[in-house]
Simulated scan of single mutants.
Amino acid sequence: MAYNKLNNPRAFPGNSNYGMSLRDYFAGQALAGDMADEKLSNDAPPAFLQERAQLYYRLADAMLKARAEEEALSGTTAMMGMSY
């Protein structure tokens, strides 16, 4: 899926173009949930951590895809609840 401002907007929109994308936010939330598992926070091998990071972004991609599909079906945007 190609990302642009419409399907990967800023996580916390405002008057600035700076800040994390929604994809980064979703991946970070997946990471935060995973970090509750003690095995991830104690001496995990770098290869394992890289695999987990890739998983978090795949999860974020799936969330963005589901979000876009829902918006297409409902004719609204998830961020504002406004019709196109």
Rank of each mutant, 00 (worst) to 15 (best):
N42P: 02
D61V: 02
M80R: 06
R52D: 00
L64M: 01
Y3N: 11
S21T: 15
L55T: 02
G28E: 02
E71G: 08
D37E: 07
F48K: 10
N15Q: 07
E70Y: 12
L31R: 05
T77H: 11
Y25E: 05
G19E: 01
L31K: 08
S83I: 13
A53R: 13
L22F: 00
Y18R: 07
G19H: 01
R58M: 05
E69G: 05
E69R: 08
F12K: 11
P45I: 07
D61P: 00
N7E: 05
L73Q: 15
A32G: 04
E70F: 07
P13G: 03
Y18T: 14
A78Q: 11
P9H: 01
G19C: 02
G28Y: 00
Y18A: 07
A68I: 03
F48M: 14
Y25C: 03
K39P: 01
E71L: 03
F26I: 00
L40S: 11
Q54P: 00
Q50M: 14
N42K: 11
Q54D: 12
Q54I: 05
L6C: 02
D43G: 13
P45Y: 10
M82L: 15
L64A: 01
Y3C: 06
K5L: 10
D24Y: 02
A47R: 13
F26G: 00
N8T: 03
T77Y: 13
L59R: 13
E71S: 09
A36D: 14
L40C: 14
Y84W: 13
D34T: 11
L40I: 15
L22E: 01
L31G: 01
M63V: 03
Q54W: 03
R10M: 06
F12G: 04
Y3D: 08
M1T: 12
Y84P: 04
L22R: 00
A47N: 10
G19L: 02
L73Y: 05
Y57P: 00
T76H: 13
E51I: 04
Q29P: 06
P45Q: 10
P9S: 04
S74C: 12
L64Y: 00
Y57C: 04
A2G: 15
M1W: 07
A78G: 08
G14P: 08
N8C: 05
S83A: 13
R10G: 06
N15W: 06
Y84T: 05
Y57I: 09
S21K: 13
A78I: 08
G33Y: 02
A27G: 08
A30M: 06
A11D: 12
Y25Q: 06
E38R: 15
A47K: 10
D43I: 01
F12S: 09
N17P: 13
A32C: 05
R67D: 02
Y3A: 07
K5G: 07
Y84C: 03
A62H: 05
A2T: 14
S74M: 14
E70Q: 15
Q54E: 03
A36C: 15
A47T: 10
A66C: 13
Q50R: 14
A53T: 08
T77C: 10
F26K: 00
F26Y: 11
A78H: 04
F26T: 00
Q29T: 06
D61F: 01
M20T: 06
A68F: 05
G75L: 03
A68P: 01
L73R: 15
A60S: 09
A66N: 10
N42T: 15
R67H: 02
N42G: 04
E51Y: 07
K65S: 10
A32H: 10
E38L: 14
L55G: 01
A32R: 09
D24A: 07
G81A: 08
F12A: 08
A66S: 12
P46C: 02
